[in-house]
Amino acid sequence: MADAPTIGRKGASFDVAAFFRRYAALTALIVLLAFNFAVTPNFASWQTLNVNLTQVATIVIVSVGMTLVIATGGIDLSVGSLMAISGALAPMIFLSSFGLSYPALGNALAFVAPVAIAGMFGLFNGWFITRFRVQPIVGTLVMFIAGRGIGQVLTNGNLQAFKNPTFQFIGLGRVFGVPCQVIIMLALVAAAAWTLRSTLFGRQILSVGGNERAAWLSGVPVASVKRWVYAISGLCAGIAGLVVVSINSSSDANLVGLGMELDAIAAVAVGGTPFTGGQATVVGSLIGALLIQLVRYTLLANGVPDAAALVVKGAIIAGAVWSQQRGKPT
């Protein structure tokens, strides 16, 4: 007969190979860092860390939302377009006559409204997918195509250049020396990781991804959970859009967030979250994004043409998925 079950696993002997398979992305990151310290000129400086973190921050912010969506077994292709909408709306608000007359209120609104609207478009994605039982890749394709168009229509395709230090703090400012977007990025990662681990909502997300039918039969509000994760993904995209336009002091609806959905998906894949859903690691997505960013930086700083970087990026993703498959239990 079984003994009274103990909580927590009994100690297993340390399997080096299995350890590396599970932490493949982190290992690769460490190896790449070592390589850079040795080879890349001027790598060992705080400024380099700064540059890399700020460059990766927007991808990570979007990846947080993407991880949650993928945890339910879905996917969100619309994030780049939602970034464009959010990035287009913000300057329109604080450059409007209202925004110029009441700058404090204008700036506050320019933070809140675009993110909220991106979140609502995300909610639309969720509603569309659950109401019509459409596959997420098809459902979010609608906003992927239409969203950027909406942004372009709002701005007539024109670039909006601006200078608004208060608003641009989100992209250019620092808090105790740490860039604002890096703090936002870390806060979102921590919040999402905690949510998945400890809250009812987080466990419901994982059960929906793990076995949707079983979850539904156990009373989990599957449709509601799905709507919310897509809304959260929209919110993250909205925040990322604000960061991008702030850094560039300009908002170009044609270009903001272009290709971001693929970068976020790549980060999630490399980070180890399976696309079948049911398991998720937000910290993994962070590491995945850092790895991809570091590879890009390494190649660029060492004079390798950009086209080659794309090939290497593809190779990393393939390698990451391969090593994860090897780590699966027999």
């Binding site: 809250t199 009812l200 059960s207 039918r213 079983a214 049911g278």
Partner: peptide, 24 residues
């Protein structure tokens, strides 16, 4: 297999799936 277990979750998680809101 199809309607019952959430395969990647633990025994504990599977068992309490129905009453999770009550434990929250």
């Amino acid at each position: 297999k199809a309607d019952g277990i959430v395969p990647d979750m633990s025994v504990r998680e599977n068992m309490t799936l129905g009453i999770l809101p009550r434990l929250t």
